[in-house]
Design a protein around this nucleic acid. Sequence first.
RNA 1: GCCUGUAUGGCGAAAUUGGUAGACGCGAUAGACUCAAAAUCUAUUUUUCGAUGAGGAAGUUCCAGUUCAAGUCUGGAUACAGGCACCA
Length: 799
Amino acid sequence: MYNFRAIEKKWQNYWDEKGTFNVSVDDSKKKFYMLVEFPYPSGTGLHVGHARVYSASDVQARFRRAMGYNVLFPMGWDAFGAPAEQYAIKNHVYPALVVKENSRVFKEQMKSLGLSIDWSREFSTTDPEYYKLTQWQFLQFYKAGLAYKSYKEINWCPKCKMGLSNEDAQGGVCERCGSPTTKKLKNQWVLRMSDYADKLLDGLDDTLFLDKVKTAQINWIGKSVGASVSFKLADCDDFIEVFTTRPDTLYGVTFMVISPEHEFLSKYKDRISNIDEVTKYQESAKRKSEIERTDNTKEKTSVLVKGLEAINPVTGDLLPIWVADYVLASYGTGAIMAVPAHDERDYAFARKFSIPIVPVIDGGDIDKEAYVLDGVHINSDFLNGLNKDDAISKMIDFLESKGIGHKQVNYRLQDWIFSRQRFWGEPIPMVYCDSCGWVPVDEADLPIVLPVVESYEPTDNGESPLANIEEFVNCKCPKCGGSAKRETDTMPNWAGSSWYWLRYMDPHNSNEIASMDAMKYWGQVDLYDGGMEHATRHLLYARFWNIFLHEQGLVPYSEPFLKRIAHGMILASNGEKMSKSKGNVVNPNDMINEYGADALRTYEMFIGDYSKDASWNELGLKGCSKFLDRVWRLQSRLSDNLGYTDSLEIIINQTIKKVTNDISNLDYNTAVSALMILLNEMEKLDSITRSDYRVLIQLLNPFAPHITEEINSVCGLGEELSASAWPVYDEDKTVSLSYEMVVQVNGKIRGKIVVATDASNDEMLKLAYDIPNVKVFTDGKEVVKEVVVPKKLVNIVVK
RNA sequence: GCCUGUAUGGCGAAAUUGGUAGACGCGAUAGACUCAAAAUCUAUUUUUCGAUGAGGAAGUUCCAGUUCAAGUCUGGAUACAGGCACCA
């Protein structure tokens, strides 16, 4: 066993002292920007899942460097958020100190992995110099009219006095303290992201995101084309507006459903005879999450709103109005027209509450189930006999002519609620003045710094802990100079991560996000690696942010990321998620101590398809450590000769080709396997040349940078690997002169024979028929067909 | 529930995208070296019939289908994973 501990330390110190991986703008070189989602520096330290992702990014960075690129491979910390705040509340420590300590540990661990990061560009989203610019960018959103205040509901735990995510409020119970949660209406800052829905959709065409990532984004935006229709209330000159993708089924509407949050319930409370029942239902809805509310396996609950009725605009029929929580206030108008004959949910609802079902599309048997397929219209007056598309456009024309509806595009994408009632986030730089209203902080007064205090206890009324800190809250109005109060909401965790890749390009610039020169040179992120769990929100927020900055002339590209990929997770050996509570977390430090960083990196690359989850198995790591040991011991076979050994020439060229392609395609596991095969071949020989050895360690270098650099140095094989060009292969020398041809009869293998690579189809057939075992299956049979696949196989079809 | 993925030996996996299923690694078994062990090396290792040979049969979650040929394509089912807007 070679002394990996000393070797790894030696090269890590060497790279550190020399600044080997620090880069600067260099117009003479093409650039490659390798970005990986920066971590939240938790107190538990790095996880082997992190190690896989950063190792893979490092393989890519080292490979691209060898390919001649000027590679930007930076790292930083996404450190605002609840965990640091919770820790701070409990231990009365300023959260910045927690962040400092945690990120120090993370950095140390990353260094011990031998990552080729340019550490001169490190920052944390919690640095005042950084969040000053985050605040500045918020002001640009505000000044462009994209930030507004609006009342939005949040999950609320009355005991913890905290806003909760849906996950933390699952089943109407606070995950932290177990007490029942409710909803609270808060006046929140919101960014007008839905205005960018089409831009976010169209921009995807200019990217090379993985298809599943694109699909996730497209579905999240959820564009649908339909119509807005106004239903007049009976006895009243007011209208319920609905969005529907099927205005052609208007003749089949027999009732309407509104969400418990619908404004008419309070507006007309005096006319609703069963208002107590309705109010009770509204309360129960507050305890449910949207997932529970829209779960189709659960029985629909609903209350008839007595005293309010709407009128079907085409039939003139009176429509009962129901309130039900499966209708969400956040989608469309918070009200729907129900067509029970042709919608499964409406059908189940109508059946349960004995509401009439009127078929308007021919087909199916509506006594049994809703008919959701296409057909011609019936019972629909002027639409009768038309197909779906024609009926939709004719109905929209009709609605427009009557002034009670119009064509409309609807999005699932909502505006971005940008307020959090937390201490540990970027303060939103706004001031409320009784005479001037909301006023933005003067840009020159940024950053609005988080105060250093002893207690971060939450408030009783749902305000941020900042609201308790008077010296923070009280200020002068930037406009009139009168006394005013600061906004105490802070920004969501997503804010700091919505522009961090720009900052890496010019991290010490104190005047602007980054200089235009730096942003033009480093350009778009060439490869952005992150988890699938961030493929919707983070990626959409970041793209929205960047598109906006581009429109403001602040950044040179509209789309920030050229290619976004998604890696899998590392699971415990039993396939469960690793978590502290289950006690199954594997610490990379322990693995590095026992097997070395090179072995850990190689194993994590070899463990399986990078895009898929993989279960941890220490025996696999042991195997990779053995592999590196064998590479080390190959030194004993090293001769003084140069040039590839004749018998290795083809496999060396094949391996260069395979490893090059595999790393480019992120097929790290098969690249490692190809290197193992090459090593197996070399070990069969008594001696290998210096060129043989050098090419092996060059190809292995991105995976195991320390041991390869050491072998290269002690054997004097050539220039330092981190400064060497990637080996090239000769295509002609990747193909051998002969191959094993497969012979099938009726698709079953009946023989194999070695054939010259350049054999003609006729020669292949002749050799196939000559095989004794093939004769057994063809003799006396009629040959129906002969299939010849050059350089592969022959299939003889007989009857 | 909805959206998106995934499913291959005892285990992690591969398969040039319709052309030899199981490369490579782990584990296991047997052997060499050793007083012995570890380490290392060699051989075997999908199941089954056959004699440990030649060879045959079955086999990529399940059920159908397309094709000379299906892990790969089509339709349906099941299970698991990720996301569902204040976890990061």
